[in-house]
Design a protein around this nucleic acid. Structure first.
Length: 595
RNA sequence: GGCCUCGUAGCUCAGUGGAUAGAGCAGCAGCCUUCUAAGCUGCGGGUCAUAGGUUCGAAUCCUAUCGGGGUCACCA
C-alpha cells in the first residue's frame, strides 16, 4: 500500500532534512481532494515547527525529497500547507493487476490466536422480535464479519433470556385463557402466540390494578398485590423449585418461541456459533460474589444482602446478591463474563446491547476489577442508540412496536411491487423472482439500519426505508447487477477481462477515481473494525457504487474499440463487482446477479 | 437533581484537529433508436444549537448555557 510506503519515506525525509525523528501521529496522509491535482496529500503543518520554515517551503522540500527518493512518486504540487503527491501510473496499474481477480480483496488472511467473542440478539422468550432487536442483530452479525475480515477469530454468541417473571406471565395467561391453543391449532408463529398471551396477561392485570385502585389502594401497592402478579410469582417460585408441571409447560411454550425465533433469524440471515440459556447460567456468579466477600472487596450487610461500593469510581453502591441469597441481573452477568473468559480466553468480549444499559456495563467492569480480574478491560459494550419512529418511541404497551416478521414481509411485498412496476422480472422464473424480492427487500432494510452510526439514535421512517433510490441498499445491489450484466456480455462477445502490457495506457479521470476508491477498501475494513462500526462499510459501499455509476455512464466499455482501454475498463468493472459484493457481505447483504 | 449522550440543509444522515462543510430524499430543469433509467447531469438550499476558550488551523478538543434522549431498583 502506497500509504505505508509514503509514511516510511516521509519519516526518512524529515530525518534527513531536519535531523528530527517524526512522530507517527504527525504524518497525516489523506486522499487528495478532487478539486486539486494529485492522489495523496501530506499535511505539512505539523513539520513547520521542526523545519522552522514556511508551510510552502517545508512542503516543497519534503516533496523534492520524495520525488528523488521514491520511485512511486511522479510529481508533486504545493498549495498552502498541503503537499499533493501524484503517484506514478505504474503503481496503480500493478495494484489493479495484482488485485482485480482476488476473491477476498480487503480481507485479512491471518488469524489472531485469541478470539473475539461477540454477544448479540439476547432476546426474551415472552414476545416476538421487533425493530429494536433487528438493529441489534444486524449490528452484531455485521460486526462479527467485519472483525473476521480484519483478521480476528470471532465467536458469535446469543444469550437467551428464557426464564423469569416475564415468561411466567405468558404461561399463566395461557393456562387461564388459552384453551389449549397451540401454534398448529391457531396457525400463529410460536413466538407470536406466546407474545399474544403476554399481552392478555397485561390486559387482565391492568384491570385488576384498576379495580384495586378504585377500592382505595394506591397504584404502586396495587400493582404489587394484584392476584395475577402474585400468581405469576408463584409460578416463578415453582419453576425455581423444579415443579414438574411448571417446568413442562415452560419447556413447551419456550419450544414454540424457539421455533418462531429460528424462522425470524433465518429470514433475517442471522446466525450464531453458540447459544446460551439463562436458565442454565443464572446461578453463575454467586461464587464470584462470595469470593469477593471473603476478599473483603464486597460488603455483606446485616440482612444478608451483598453490596459493592463504587463511589471511588464515580458510581454508586450496587447490589450483588439479594438478602434472600438470590441473584440479580448483575450477579449472573458477572458469572457469564467469567465463564466466557474461562472458555475462550478472548482478546475482547463484545456485548451488543442498547445504550440504556451503559451504566450496567460500567458497573460490571468495575465490579470485576474489584475482584482482580484484569481482563475486565477487554469488555467492550457496543452501545447502540434507540430506534425511533416518526410517531415517537416504540412502546409495546401502546402497540406501537414494529414487529420484525411483519416488517420483513412488508419489505418483500414492496420490492415485489416495485420490480413488477418497473418490468424487471419479465425474463425471471418464479424462484428467481422470489429470491430477488427477498434479496432486495432485505438489502433495503439492512442497509437502511446499518448506514447509521451505531452509537446514535436513529429515526426509522417506514416510507424512507422502502425507498430503493439514492443512498440505499438496492442502489448498491443494482450497481452490482449492472456490472455483472456487462461482464456477461463481455464474455458472450469473447472479450478478455485483462490488462494489456502496454505502458502508454493513461487513465481517464473516471477510471482513476474508481481505482482510487477501490484502493481504499482494505483501509476502510480495518477502520470499521477499529471503530466497531458497520456504518463505515455502508458509506464506503455507497460511494464506490456512485463512483462506478458515473464511470459507467460517462465511458463506454463494451463498445470501446481500443482493446487495451476496453480491457482496463472490464478489469475495473470486475474489480468493482468484487469489492461491492465483499462490502455488502460485511453488512450481511446479498447481491443479485440480475435485477 | 447527579452522571452519560446527541444537536450539521425543509427531512434522514456523512464528516477520526486540516484546504471553499458533503451525500441522499423532497423541490425545480434536463438525459433512454447506444453496455440495465432501481441510473446519470445541473440548479437552489448552512449563524455546523448558543457563548467563550485552546490551536498555525475547530463541525471535530475544553468550559458554560439552551434544547432532545438515556440512566441513577433487593427489575432485566
Amino acid at each position: 500500500m502506497i500509504e505505508h510506503i509514503l509514511t516510511v519515506k516521509v519519516t526518512e525525509a524529515v530525518k534527513a532534512l531536519y535531523q528530527h525523528d517524526a512522530d507517527l501521529s504527525q504524518i497525516q496522509l489523506q486522499n487528495t481532494r478532487k478539486e486539486f491535482d494529485g492522489d495523496i496529500t501530506l499535511v505539512v503543518f505539523p513539520f513547520t515547527k521542526i523545519s522552522r520554515k514556511s508551510p510552502e517551503a517545508t512542503a516543497t522540500e519534503i516533496g523534492e525529497y520524495l520525488s528523488l527518493n521514491l520511485a512511486e512518486v511522479e510529481s508533486f504540487n504545493v498549495i498552502k500547507g498541503f503537499l499533493n503527491i501524484v503517484v506514478r501510473k505504474e503503481y496503480w496499474l500493478s495494484f489493479l493487476s495484482n488485485n482485480y481477480l482476488v476473491e477476498k480483496f480487503g480481507f485479512q488472511d491471518s488469524r489472531k490466536k485469541q478470539p473475539v467473542v461477540v454477544e448479540y440478539s439476547s432476546p426474551n422468550t415472552n414476545k416476538p422480535l421487533h425493530l429494536g432487536h433487528i438493529r441489534n442483530n444486524l449490528l452484531g452479525f455485521s460486526l462479527s464479519r467485519i472483525l473476521q475480515a480484519a483478521g480476528h477469530e470471532v465467536v458469535k454468541v446469543n444469550l437467551v433470556n428464557d426464564r423469569g417473571i416475564h415468561i411466567c406471565k405468558s404461561m399463566l395467561a395461557w393456562q387461564k385463557w388459552g384453551n389449549g391453543e397451540t401454534p398448529e391449532s391457531s396457525g400463529l408463529k410460536g413466538d407470536h402466540l406466546v407474545g399474544k398471551y403476554y399481552v392478555v396477561f397485561d390486559k387482565y392485570f391492568k384491570e385488576e390494578v384498576a379495580n384495586l385502585v378504585a377500592e382505595g389502594m394506591n397504584a404502586e401497592e396495587a400493582s404489587k398485590k394484584a392476584p395475577l402478579i402474585l400468581e405469576a410469582q408463584q409460578i416463578l417460585q415453582k419453576w425455581e423449585a423444579g415443579d414438574e408441571d411448571v417446568i413442562s409447560l415452560w419447556k413447551k411454550m419456550n419450544g414454540w418461541v424457539y421455533e418462531g425465533f429460528a424462522i425470524t433469524y433465518q429470514t433475517l440471515g442471522i446466525e450464531f456459533d453458540k447459544t446460551y440459556y439463562e436458565s442454565k447460567t443464572y446461578l453463575l456468579g454467586k461464587e464470584l460474589v462470595e469470593k469477593g466477600v471473603q476478599q473483603g472487596v464486597y460488603i455483606r450487610r446485616d440482612d444478608g444482602s451483598v453490596w459493592v461500593d463504587l463511589n471511588a469510581e464515580g458510581l454508586d453502591e450496587k447490589l450483588l446478591l439479594r438478602s434472600d441469597g438470590t441473584s440479580v441481573y448483575m450477579t449472573q452477568d458477572l458469572g457469564t463474563a467469567q465463564q466466557r473468559y474461562d472458555e475462550y480466553n478472548p482478546e475482547q468480549l463484545i456485548y451488543v446491547v442498547g445504550n440504556e444499559q451503559e451504566y450496567h456495563f460500567n458497573v460490571l467492569k468495575a465490579v470485576l476489577k474489584h475482584l482482580g480480574c484484569s481482563w475486565a478491560e477487554s469488555i467492550y459494550h457496543l452501545s447502540y442508540g434507540m430506534v425511533e419512529l416518526p410517531a415517537g418511541k416504540m412502546k409495546s404497551r401502546e402497540g406501537t412496536v414494529v414487529d420484525a416478521d411483519d416488517l420483513m414481509q412488508e419489505m418483500f411485498d414492496t420490492s415485489e411491487a416495485m420490480a413488477r412496476e418497473l418490468g424487471k422480472i419479465e425474463t425471471f422464473d418464479n424462484d428467481e423472482a422470489h429470491n430477488l424480492y427477498r434479496t432486495i427487500g432485505l438489502g433495503a432494510l439492512k442497509y437502511f439500519i446499518l448506514k447509521v452510526d451505531p452509537k446514535k439514535n436513529m429515526m426509522f421512517n417506514p416510507a424512507e426505508s422502502v425507498d430503493f433510490n439514492g443512498n440505499t441498499g438496492p442502489f448498491i445491489q443494482y450497481t452490482y447487477a449492472r456490472i455483472k450484466s456487462v461482464l456477461r456480455k463481455a464474455e458472450d462477445a469473447g472479450f478478455e477481462i485483462m490488462l494489456s502490457e502496454s505502458k502508454d495506457t493513461g487513465f481517464m479521470p473516471q477510471e482513476k477515481e474508481l481505482l482510487k476508491k477501490l484502493h481504499d477498501f482494505p483501509i476502510i475494513v480495518s477502520q470499521a473494525a477499529g471503530m466497531h462500526s458497520p456504518a463505515v462499510i455502508a458509506n464506503y459501499a455507497f460511494e464506490l457504487a456512485s463512483e462506478y455509476n458515473r464511470f459507467y455512464h460517462e465511458l463506454t466499455i463494451l463498445k470501446e474499440e481500443n482493446i487495451s482501454s476496453r480491457g482496463l475498463r472490464l478489469s475495473l468493472s470486475q474489480f468493482t463487482s468484487k469489492v461491492i459484493s465483499n462490502s455488502l457481505w460485511l453488512l450481511g447483504i446479498e447481491v443479485p446477479e440480475r435485477m
